[in-house]
Amino acid sequence: MSERIVKLIIDGKEIFAKPTDTILKAAIDNGIQIPTLCYLEGLTPHGGCRLCVVEVKGNPKLMTSCTTPVSNNMEIITNSPKLIKYRKQIIELLLAERIHTCSVCIANGSCELQELASKFGVDHTNVSRNWERFELDMSHERFVLDHNRCILCTRCIRVCDEIEGVHTLDIKRRGKDSMIIVDLDEPWSASYSCTSCGKCSAVCPVGAIYVKGKPLSETKRKELPKFITERRRR
């Protein structure tokens, strides 16, 4: 049986994709770049960072390309001035939300937020920054959880749940007070469910979860979820 193929137009370029593809996948496969942050191949798309929003013709709402499946004759714009402005604003809000002081951060040089800021030219923040301080969880013998640098992308939660299968990490509270927690908000060292696999530190886009004594550039493995899920499917 031949596979059905859909035709769509992204930024004026005609491309073909599988009907099960998301807009993001179709774009990547065809060399069109859409910025992402919470998205990580191999994990369930989260749709939270809103960086990958695109305009779909005929739809008044902006759609997250990581979650929206393609359909035939879809017309998509990924880089309108409005979208670029929104992306800049989102990066700016993230930089201002918690304490992102790159010069003293373990992720300096391998941080996705830092990279995005440079890429989009977010060279300062217009909104005031928050100075709420969160206590670090350094109880685990190998890992550190630093809420001050967390952007709540939930990659760690998803990798812990979907790949490692233990769901040690989750979120407590809501809105701006949201925080990553270990088990039922216990010190990491007291966790029964954690297998100390370290996948959370491998996928953290910023310096919120890291391995003690090692720069993030040594421990980061962004391709890990994709690698594991692909092998599991076989």
């Binding site: 809000l93 928050n130 979120i171 509270r173 701006k176």
Partner: peptide, 17 residues
């Protein structure tokens, strides 16, 4: 702002601003 779930950034980080 109080009721924002915190999942997406514009609402979570934008409303406090």
């Amino acid at each position: 702002m109080d009721e924002s779930c915190g999942k997406c950034i514009p609402c979570r980080a934008g409303l406090p601003k």
